[in-house]
Simulated assay, not measured.
Amino acid sequence: MINFNGTLFPRDKELLTANNRGLKFGDALFETLRCVNGTLFFWEDHYFRLMASMRILRMEIPMSFTLEYLEEEIKKTIAANDLESGAARVRLTVFRNGGGLYTPATNEVSFVIETSALESPFYLVNESPYEVELFKDFYVNKDMLSNLKTTNKALHVVASVFAKENGYANCLLVNTEKQVVEAINGNLFVVNGKQIKTAPLSDGCLDGIIRKKVMEIIASSEELELLEASISPFELQKADELFITNSIQGIQPITKYRKKEFGCEVAKSLVGKLNAKARLTQTS
């Protein structure tokens, strides 16, 4: 079952028309998050990111779009798919309603909620081979729109095709100044000794929720040092570890980039603390 504007429909129900602005112009936003035993991980962070993004795109935020209302609609969809007692992936998509060309006929919005089962209720470190390469055919722009989780992801799709065709697990994306900003599906962290570095939002990376949580963990640690600064491609092969963060996987270690192979000791230590943070959302 999927949830369209508060009403549940079978997953194969045709709901969207050819006039849909998300389809025609990429005029949509989405949030992807974990739900475990009925608890939405970091839901407040996802909600406030969505609201801020809607304001930036000048979408009209309905009065009904409260934190509590959207949480209730997500949980209703989870229950309709019998996923209340396990781990589930949730995607909430908000798109501007149809009409108009580049200039919308309205700024009113609709939403769709989709869910699917996940194997583990916890974030786990996957130590399987995970090789990446730079994707340099197209570049991420250094602006605020690149920070938003929109459906306008042509660059990420083409990079995914490149990765599949060449046998890579993922690709690292660079901006117009040839700085490494993120992976296809998450933020990048570079480990050198006790220093952990990630690209600043001003370089064009996604304003990721797990990026934010991992940065909080590092900043509060007495053993680790957080550095938010531009990443040069030349730094990658000199690093001790590389890892990617996103809301579904949590922390994904990179095991190989070109001729350099990496461990994942820091990633392992961080994923335990990330799970602890997630558990706090279940008890608060």
Rank of each mutant, 00 (worst) to 15 (best):
K256C: 05
Y130T: 00
V140T: 06
L242G: 04
S202D: 12
E216N: 09
V157I: 10
D137G: 09
L148A: 01
Q252W: 01
V190S: 06
Y257S: 09
Q179L: 13
E127K: 14
F189H: 08
V125A: 00
F189K: 08
E177H: 08
N246F: 02
N152Q: 10
L242E: 08
K238T: 13
L201P: 10
E222C: 07
H156R: 12
M144E: 14
S146K: 08
F262D: 05
Y123A: 11
V157D: 03
E182W: 04
E165Q: 14
K259D: 13
L201A: 12
I209M: 05
Q179D: 13
V125R: 00
L148R: 01
K259Y: 15
K142T: 14
N152P: 03
E131H: 04
V190L: 10
Y168P: 01
N185W: 10
Q249H: 05
G250A: 08
I196V: 02
L145Y: 01
T245W: 03
L188I: 04
A219P: 00
K178D: 15
N246R: 01
I251A: 02
F135A: 09
A154P: 09
E235M: 15
N141Q: 14
F262I: 08
R211L: 13
K256Y: 01
K238A: 14
E182P: 01
K259P: 10
E228L: 12
V161M: 07
G208T: 08
E261S: 04
I254R: 00
L201G: 10
V125F: 00
I231D: 00
E222Y: 06
Q237N: 11
T245R: 04
G204W: 02
V140W: 04
N187W: 02
P233Y: 05
L226I: 13
V181P: 14
V132N: 00
K194W: 14
R258H: 11
I196D: 00
G204R: 01
C171Y: 04
G167P: 06
C171M: 03
L148V: 05
S146D: 09
K153P: 12
